[in-house]
Every structure is written in structure tokens, then in C-alpha cells.
Design a protein around this nucleic acid. Structure first.
Lengths: 384, 384
DNA sequence: TCTATTAGTTCGGTAAGGGAACGAATTAAT
DNA sequence: ATTAATTCGTTCCCTTACCGAACTAATAGA
């Protein structure tokens, strides 16, 4: 379904439904307040047509990106436009305190934008880790305390009064890129996020892949980098040990003796520091191998790199240069277009898809997005 | 849908359809000859019910397993029973000759079993390599000559006169294991076949994963084993170079000086040959890493090992022993229950699913199987 | 003003299925 | 043997979702 003013005749043409069926459906939606008239066509031969548009303020969803350091919340309307935004440092108390912080942020954004809370249909919360649907908790999320032992989704739900969906942030990122980023139209897409850790999000056959235990895309456990059968690798993941923040810092200290943060390593590399360049080269090599692994297993059309480290063009270019040597078929690698907003946009994608499927007929299976891509400019603009 | 004699009332209960709807549908199928009455229930309180069963001989599909050395063809009826089997060495002329061989084998099996050819609805052909839907050819299949440049599917189709579906053999194997093997009920399942090469088949979200270019599961290109960015790895695949038949033979020759075949290596290992044991240990380690890689990316519920090398319990046990050291969550690894028949059974699964969906309503998306698992004993028996 | 063209409605019809009532057949209890 | 309880299967009518054809309405351009 495409958005924007559209006449019933045009809907009939594009959907293949007959004119009177479309008239009936549109009539129903109009009576229910979901769509409204918005002027008429003119200019071409023949009778002018009445145009309809979705009533943006008919329903809203909240999209939340919960990170180890920051929480970010926005509200999106039915027409897929963003309204307002709030960012705060993540409450260090963790657990219920974070749940309440998220609920409060959503309420505040709604108030900022004069959106009545009862029009809020759903909140989608993205976070690092493995959300457990049964318990409502989030496992394996070391940077946010106490959310692995409580019904985190339930706590937000109780405080905010709307349904809550939890999803892994990298999974959301791949949905975001699929909707508004560089993966548009791809039904087989991978997103690899490299930052504090390394994680992957996968869309295959047009659907988000979560795996049997919601832990598909745990690329940190790819069996190379460090020795995969060593005790330390069992905890941290063989690849994650060497390729993510800690691994890069360690490696640079090994080479240079300096204990510096990752952005500093990038800066020094730019200034020609040989040790920093070595670290980047090595990291790129590992990242390239991770890309190869994902392609060997899943064969996506495109791999998008993101995360605070993975989105650095220094790395993306190095990876691009390495890949032709390692794989028989060419692999398309892109730098994330949405940056750190990919997850937030993905959260909006899930929420809006669910909402719109409920209204306009649920043709799409869960984990698939079918949203208009044209008019959602302000979401893309919100990206950076 | 479950098979076996079943009353209309029971169908109504299990499908949720109303009784009269079921009566209408069953009536239609009976008129068309797809189902028939088969006695009545008795024993419990209440009126006795008329039972219906599928008419097995109403339609058939052919399942073909095309390998580098042998072609195997069977025919399955609508009730999922196997009828007849023929095996032949693969025609070394390759190309059209093989297509005609397959068509002839199918005709012969049909004749053996007095099955009229016009009841044959479909032939599903599994082969190593990457089938191209657009051209009907099979790419990357070095052991069977000339099938990458012709319309192989079309050639079979022309000669046999029925629709032909080509599918990768490992993809079929995972479908086979999902239907009648050790992966029953799993909607996230992986099959890794290790033999001449190494390949993986993946079912995620209940659907077969083919990837963007039909080459998901090309595990030979996993970036470890040999140096992944070396020229040789680009052709053969870094992992395939060291883990499959040729790699094992080379490694054993390196260690011992003897150029022997793989089964001989296994025999010598059993007799305590230290070099042979080393080769097995190393191969197991690589295989375990491949399992880890698949689990890190796709997180299947279970990984099934097969192929002439991968199905050896010596390897399966070694892999099982290694895995707990390499992965945070336990990974379930099984030895293929269906052995070299997994692909054939998968081919039957695809064919029968397609056939039955066409008849009984196509609720299931492509790449999903929804077949009865109980009564298909003779297919499982045909396995070894 | 007339005409081609496009928009939208009215009217009837079809396919898939549901709900309720009811007759038919069967076992179990009296 | 009769009756009650239970289950099977049908009949009748309803709803939902859709389509096709004919028709009316509006508009640009000749």
C-alpha cells in the first residue's frame, strides 16, 4: 500500500480490486475515522476523483531505542511521520527504573506533541540482548542491569498502559535499513553492527530471522579471531574478543603500549600512526571474515555495516577491498545510511506495520514490513 | 492435515471449519476422485461416522536424487508411500544425456509399478550445486558435466512430460530431516553435509532458506580453515579446501606420505593409526567450527550432520565433544537419521507438499512442508 | 455544445464459510 | 424394550468479501 492522497479509482487499479469493493472499504475506513477526503484530482480528461489520505492522528506508536548509555524515544503517527523526540542517559539503576524511565519518556513525548495517550496503540522497544517473549525479560544485555530477571515488557506496559514489543536492536536495525535505508526492496538482507560488541540482524525470505532461541545473529560467537574452543571464548565469543571495542583497545595497547579509546585509535590512524593502522587493518580483516561467514551461511543480497565502529568509512572501505579476495561471488557491502537511528526506525517499522496490518488487513506475516517508503522523509531526516 | 481414515466430524474439529463446510469440501474431493469412503467408526457413544481416506493412486510425484556418481529415482503416491526405486550410475556424458536418463528412470519406475504416466504430476530433482530458476540450469556442480549451460529442467520436462522442480540436494536433505528425520517439528533447523564438499541446508521460521542467489549454505566458503583471502580459497572455499574429501586426503598424505581414500583413513584411525586419528581430530574441529558458525548466524534448534564423511559417528562424536567449549549455549547435534536418502525424501516432501497444497488448499507458503508424518513408514524404511 | 474519458454508484451475483436447528444412528442406562 | 445421552451429518438461511455490468456524474477538449 502506498500513502499520500490517492483516489479510489487509483486504489482499484493498483490493488486489482474492483471499484465498488474499494469504495466499500474506503467508505468503512472513512466512517471509522482512519482515512479522510483530501481534495480532488484535476487536470486530466474525465471526471475528477476524490482523493483520500490516511488520518495521521488516528493512532500513534512509540519507538524506543534503549542503549547502555542513552534512551531515545519518538512517536510516529499512522502516516509514518515522526513527532517529537526525547533522549536521556539510561537510568543507571537498571531494571524497573529503566522501564519506568521509558514509560515516562513516551508520556513526555506525547505531551510535548499534544498527542492524547489513548491514541497510542503500541510501544516498540529495541535493546541490545536477547528478548524472551515468555518472560518479558531481556537476556544477555550486560550493559543494562537487572532487565534479565524481571518482566521488563510488563513493567513498561503497566506504567505506560499500552502493549509493548521488545526486540533486539540489531534486528530492528536491519528492519530499519530494509524500510528506509540502503536495504530497500531486498528480501534477503544482513546488517552487521560493530561497536561494544558485534551482532547481526538478518532478513531472509522477506522475514526477520530470530532463530530458535531469539539469538540468531550472535556474530560474536563466530569461531575465528581468538581460539574458539578456549574458555574465554565461551564467555565472550571468539570473534567478539578481538574485533569489538575491548579487543581493539587491547590490541592497540599490545602494539603501542598506550591505553586509548577506540575513537582515538581512528584519529591516530588518520595521522599515520602505524600501530593504529595495523589495528584497523586487522579489525577490518576480521569484519570481512564475519561478512564472509554471514554470506556463506545466508547469502543475503547486501550486507550493511553499522555500529559505532562498523559505520566508520575507514573500516567499510577496507572490508570492501578485502572481500573480492575471499569469496567467489561479489558481495555488496554498504555503510549504514541510517546510522544510530536504524534501530529506532526499525522499531517504528515494526510498530507501524503491526498497527496498519490491524487496520488495513493483515496480509503480511509477522516480521515482514509493508510500509510506504516515499513520504516518510522526516523519519530519514531524524536519522542523524 | 493428518492422513489415515478420518471422519468429516473429526476434520471439522481439527480444522475449525464447520461441519457442513467440511461436508461440502469432502463431497467435492470425493466426486473428483481424490478421497474415498473407507468404512465407519464404531465403539463409542453416538452415531457412527463415515471415514474417508486419500486415494493414494490419484496422483504421483517422482523424486530424483542426482549425484556425481549415481542417479536414484522413486515415485511417491498421494498418501506419501514410496513405489519402486531405480538406481543407475550417472551418465558420464552429462548434460542432456543425464536429463534423458532421469526421465527414462522415472518412466521405468512408473512402468515397474504399473503407474500410468499421466497420473504423474511432478518430478523433483535434487542435485549438488545451485539451481537457477530462470534458466533451468544448475550452476557450480563440477561433478556433473554440462548442466550449467543448458535448460536442464526443461530437458527433463520435455522428455518426461511433467513439470520439473530442481533443488539443491542439501536443501532437500534438511527438508527430508524436517519431515521424517531427526528435525521433525523444528522450525529452525540446519543440515550440514560433509563429503566431496561441504554444504548446508537451512530451515528458518519454518521455511527453506535459499538466499538471494540460491546459494545460502555454501559453507565451503566459511572464512577459516585455509587462509580465506588467498587465491585458492576464492575458487574452492577456505573451509572446503581443508575439510572435505580432497582436504582430508592431502592432510593425511602430508602426515604419513600415503595417498589413500577417505574411508581408508577412517579404517586406519580405527586401527589406531596416529596420523589418521590426527586427520579425524582436525576435520572434526573444522566441522565443529562450521557448526558454530551456522549457530552464531542462524541459531537453529538443532544441527544434523550428514554426507559420506559427516555422517560417520567418529566425527559426530568428536564434534559433540568439542562444541560445549566453543559456544555459550548448548548446541544439539545429531547424526542424520536418513543418511543418503535424506535428499530423496526431501524431494518427495517438496513434490507431495506442492501436490497436496494444490488439492487440499494451499495454506502453506512455498518452502514449507505440511505432510503427515505418521504413516509414511516405507519412506523411512527406504532410507538405508 | 458535444464527445470521449474517467470516477463512482447501483444492482445483482458468486464463492466460501458460519450458526442453528433438526433428523439419524448409535451406545448406555433403566 | 424403552429412553436418554451423544455424536454424525444435513438443511436452511445468514454473512463476508468480492466481482461484473450497467448506469450516472463530472470534466477536458474539440
Amino acid at each position: 500500500m502506498n500513502d499520500g492522497p490517492i483516489s479510489r479509482a487509483a486504489i482499484a487499479k493498483s490493488t486489482g480490486l474492483s471499484k465498488q469493493t474499494v469504495s466499500e472499504i474506503v467508505g468503512g475506513l472513512e466512517d471509522a475515522g482512519w482515512v479522510r477526503e483530501t481534495g480532488r484530482t484535476s487536470g486530466h480528461v474525465g471526471r475528477s476523483a476524490v482523493n483520500y489520505e490516511i488520518v495521521p492522528e488516528a493512532a500513534y506508536i512509540a519507538a524506543v531505542d534503549l542503549g547502555g548509555t542513552k534512551v531515545r524515544a519518538v512517536i510516529a503517527d499512522l502516516a509514518c511521520s515522526i513527532h517529537g523526540e526525547r533522549v536521556e542517559p539510561t537510568d543507571p539503576k537498571g531494571g524497573v527504573a529503566v522501564a519506568e524511565q521509558i514509560a515516562r519518556l513516551c508520556r513526555q513525548v506525547a505531551e510535548d506533541e499534544s498527542i492524547p495517550l489513548d491514541k497510542l496503540a503500541l510501544a516498540v522497544v529495541g535493546a541490545p540482548g536477547v528478548p524472551e517473549t515468555e518472560t518479558g525479560s531481556i537476556q544477555m544485555s550486560p550493559n543494562i542491569g537487572g532487565i534479565d530477571t524481571i518482566d521488563f515488557a510488563g513493567a513498561i506496559r503497566t506504567s505506560l498502559g499500552v502493549d509493548v514489543v521488545l526486540e533486539n536492536d540489531v534486528n530492528l536495525a536491519v528492519l530499519g535499513e530494509n524500510w528506509l535505508g540502503l536495504g530497500q526492496g531486498a528480501s534477503n538482507l544482513a546488517f552487521i553492527a560493530l561497536g561494544t560488541g558485534i551482532g547481526g540482524g538478518l532478513i531472509l525470505n522477506g522475514e526477520l530471522i530470530r532463530g530458535a532461541a531469539n539469538s540468531a545473529g550472535e556474530l560474536g560467537f563466530l569461531p575465528f579471531g581468538a581460539d574458539p574452543f578456549e574458555a574465554e571464548s565461551k564467555k565472550a565469543g571468539a570473534l567478539e574478543r578481538v574485533v569489538a571495542t575491548v579487543g581493539m583497545k587491547n590490541r592497540y595497547r599490545e602494539l603501542s603500549g598506550d591505553a586509548v579509546e577506540v575513537p582515538e585509535i581512528f584519529d591516530r590512524a588518520e595521522q599515520g600512526d602505524q600501530n593504529a593502522l595495523t589495528v584497523l587493518d586487522e579489525t577490518a580483516k576480521y569484519l570481512a571474515r564475519a561478512v564472509c561467514a554471514v554470506c556463506a551461511v545466508a547469502n543475503p543480497e547486501k550486507v550493511i555495516l553499522g555500529g559505532s565502529i562498523g559505520e566508520r568509512s575507514e573500516l567499510v572501505e577496507r572490508v570492501r577491498a578485502l572481500l573480492p579476495a575471499g569469496f567467489s561471488r561479489p558481495i555488496t557491502v554498504e555503510r549504514s545510511a541510517l546510522g544510530h537511528s536504524a534501530s529506532l526506525i526499525g522499531a517504528a517499522a515494526i510498530g507501524l506495520t503491526q498497527l496498519r496490518n490491524a487496520l488495513f488487513g493483515a496480509e503480511a506475516p509477522a516480521g515482514t514490513i509493508a510500509l510506504p517508503s516515499g513520504r516518510t522523509v522526516n523519519l530519514s531526516e531524524a536519522a542523524q
